[in-house]
Design a protein around this nucleic acid. Structure first.
Lengths: 238, 238
DNA sequence: TGCGCAAACTTATAATACAGGTTTTCAAAA
DNA sequence: TTTTGAAAACCTGTATTATAAGTTTGCGCA
């Protein structure tokens, strides 16, 4: 960690330059999650900018979740994380540039695929975990918070079982936003029968994946989204 | 813009608190892209933190592309933008948490859907634009940079024609990363025949969408990805 | 009414100070 | 020799002050 970073000829924005240099540093030195970056003082020197600029650059990288910061600790390379993507979606929703239906439509597209892949690639442990979530929902149909938690956990488990972190990233990001509309869909399922039906699909889904039946898994997932979108539509959406 | 922001009892991180309060401010006041936020000085006062903290918070929001900053200008609410999502994917690639194949697999899943939707929802103007990109590629098979530019533009145009900004966001983000692997796939298509074939598919795709044939569009898109992934595999991937 | 310029306002960057975490080091104890 | 504990060195979080430079606003003049 003793090398100098190349000095930028620079342009208008010092912070932007620092961000890209630090990002390049991570790449060039092939740093992995957990690895430490140079201290602010060291970066101040090697980038030839004030500590103010270095700090704002580090904050920017932390906001995008490329690094982790902590008092007294040197910055470290961060684990892949969906919260920054979730922020983008959330911003789109808050500013009316996206609506919930569009999020669900994207989810449906992706989750049809993760269901298929999960059925093909899931480990025994993953299959058990999914069944656990589905059953946990069934036992607590009177507690929306618990149902939601297990609902989301099941979908995320399926995404992970697809063995493609890109899918897990996206599904995780969607969930960071869906938390706010989930209760609406739940309330729209007014009767116990409807709630039972929703849970039935979750159980069937987990079972199809456990049975390594990609066709069935994907079909059930699709039906599940039909149902969810209908519920949201009934509730007035947006 | 004269209201006070609620004071946070706050926890450990002042910057994080400021970020969420400013984000909440945008939501509460229903600000839209282009709308101006309070000045740093005003935020310093309403949030009861130093200007240092306010600036780092604003930088964080700018890094996630929720706001735009500029010298002398008040911060403004930003248009939806994919660059922050692209950074997440790029980080995943640089740190070996994602590989190119996984990106392509996610793309294939999404673009099968955007092709279908585009065939159903495209306007005449969008159809013409797509055909334009496909033809531009054909005429410049000797100039990789031009081919790539039109390739990406075509795929993005299809995503936009799906009328779901979530898809456009994702495809745009992928492209911000794919730029670096594209030349590899191109070089792997060594013969003119192979390059012709690739272009053929692009043309067929644009035509299927122009003909409002969702089935064909989706099928061709899938074949296109088969071809691309084969090319990358031949080149050794990553 | 329209134009242009100066004043007021705002952000960009730097430098300094200090409080409070974390890591490293080193010597004493087991 | 290994372990432990605490001090020293190092590092980040936040605040304050200064100054340069970009943008907006508004007033006065044509």
């Amino acid at each position: 960690m003793s090398e100098k970073l190349p000095t930028t000829p620079s342009s208008g924005d010092l912070v932007a330059g620092a961000v890209s240099q630090i990002s390049a540093f991570i790449r060039k030195n092939q740093l992995k999650p957990g690895d430490r970056l140079p201290s602010e003082a060291a970066l101040t020197e090697s980038l030839n900018v004030s500590r103010t600029v270095v700090r704002e650059a580090l904050r920017s990288l932390a906001a995008m979740r490329l690094i982790d910061l902590g008092a007294g600790k040197r910055p470290t390379v961060a684990e892949l994380d969906d919260s920054s993507i979730a922020m983008t979606f959330r911003h789109g929703l808050f500013t009316d540039q996206i609506d919930i239906r569009q999020i669900y439509d994207a989810r449906r597209t992706i989750e049809g695929r993760t269901a298929t892949l999960a059925a093909l690639l899931r480990t025994e442990k993953e299959a058990d975990e999914m069944l656990g979530f589905a059953r946990a929902m069934q036992n607590r149909l009177d507690q929306p918070a618990v149902v939601m938690e297990n609902d989301l956990a099941l979908h995320l488990a399926i995404a992970r079982a697809s063995k493609n972190p890109v899918f897990a990233l996206m599904i995780g990001a969607f969930q960071g936003v869906i938390v706010e509309s989930w209760p609406i869909g739940w309330r729209a399922r007014a009767t116990d029968d409807e709630r039972e039906a929703m849970n039935r699909l979750h159980l069937d889904l987990a079972e199809a994946i456990a049975a390594s039946d990609p066709q069935a898994a994907s079909t059930i997932m699709d039906r599940h989204f039909d149902q969810s979108l209908r519920a949201l539509a009934r509730a007035g959406l947006t």
